[in-house]
Amino acid sequence: MNIILLYCRAGFEGECSQEIQEKASYAGVFGYCKTNKGQGFVEFVLTDAKDVKKVFKQVALNELIFTRQWARVNEPLENVSREDRVQPIIDFLLSSGQGVCGKVSVDCPDSEGTANLKTFARKFTAPISKALRNNGLLTPKQDPNLDVLCLFFSDFDKVYIGELDNKNSSPDHLGISRLKFPKGAPSRSTLKLEEAWRTFFHPDEWYDLLGGHQKAVDLGACPGGWTWQLVNQGMDVFSVDHGPMDDDLMKSGHVTHVLEDGFVYKPAKNVDWMVCDIVDKPKRVSSMIIDWLVGGYCTKTVFNLKLPMKKRYQEVQECLQLIQTALSENGQRCRIQAKHLYHDREEITCFIQVI
């Protein structure tokens, strides 16, 4: 397996490619990327399978902003018969000396025009699982201690065969959090904040970071999608926006609507959380984040950075470095994470905690 297959949002293959090449170079590994714009995945090709394992050992998936999921795979099987896809896969695995896996994941790109392919992948899981177990390639029950067999169909007759690392991959299928729109939330943007928390927090730290009746500020809050999430965690929230807030949310008794500019407002007393979904130039938002953290107005923040049309990866790196440098120069240790979430479009979501 000399290829790393990286799943990303369609249209962001270039940023995904830049990032993996940069991260791999820090590990002393060099390769080249193969991709087509809009296909929703990238092939990072290396000369040696040992280099692939080295990347997985030294680079964590949660360090990659534009990659949702990744797998170690072989060169794809092409022209697979649509009459019988099972046997060619079984034959390949047996001939390659593939060991037993604890689970199988039938994957495909999350891109435009793949709805039928997704339906096929879902239906194909049962017959391929049965065949794998019959040939001793899959445990009778799921075993989380073993790697996951990955079958990635980039088309109906083309499949990449490999594995998902059980310690360094997303537990979510395709790396996508499947969230239901919560009843009572005033806008779909609420899912961005919920996905951010689920992406950045370990379940064991959820209460420490969100519980205990904390105080929060939501900048650019209207109509209240992010405020709703904060209130749902038991927080009292100052929602800052000149626009109207959702009536039912205001009736909760936990929201104070502040009619001010989010870039100007500062709380009279320091709060635990500040969240921000204001659409503006990323460096302007970054400067505002620095003001809040260096000024001690909050210790935890989730915010979005709207990406420019060009040099998106470069802009992300510059913004995060700007924040990191400012906090370091102020003697503040911090935890910084960023991800291009499923519910994001032309932006990335960041989490910072001052430790």
Rank of each mutant, 00 (worst) to 15 (best):
G11L: 05
G11A: 05
F12Q: 01
E15H: 04
C16H: 01
C16A: 13
E19C: 08
I20W: 00
I20S: 02
E22S: 05
F30I: 08
N36L: 06
V42M: 07
V45P: 00
T47L: 03
D48L: 02
K50G: 05
K57P: 00
Q58M: 05
A60F: 07
I65Q: 01
T67L: 05
W70M: 07
W70I: 04
E75I: 05
P76C: 12
N79D: 15
R85F: 10
R85W: 11
I90M: 04
D91Y: 03
L93W: 02
S96Q: 14
C101E: 03
C101P: 01
V104T: 11
V106T: 07
D107K: 08
C108H: 06
P109L: 09
D110L: 12
D110A: 12
S111I: 11
K123N: 15
K123C: 10
F124K: 09
F124V: 08
T125S: 12
A126Q: 15
A126G: 09
S129A: 15
K130S: 13
L132S: 09
R133Y: 02
T139L: 09
C150R: 05
F152K: 08
F156H: 04
F156N: 02
Y160E: 11
I161L: 08
G162E: 10
S170T: 13
S170I: 14
L174Q: 15
L179R: 09
P182V: 14
P182Q: 15
A185T: 06
S187Y: 07
R198A: 12
R198M: 15
L209A: 10
L209T: 06
G211V: 05
Q214F: 06
C222D: 01
Q229F: 03
Q233E: 12
D241P: 06
D246V: 08
D247P: 01
D247W: 00
S252F: 03
G253Q: 08
H254W: 01
T256I: 10
T256P: 00
T256F: 02
H257N: 09
V258P: 03
N270T: 15
V271D: 02
W273P: 04
V279E: 07
I289T: 08
I290K: 11
V294N: 10
Y297W: 15
T299P: 00
T299V: 07
K306Y: 08
M309H: 08
K311Y: 15
V316L: 05
L320R: 07
L322S: 12
I323R: 00
I323A: 01
N330R: 11
N330C: 14
N330A: 15
G331H: 07
Q332D: 04
I336K: 12
H340R: 11
C350I: 11
F351W: 14
I352C: 07
I352Y: 02
V354C: 14
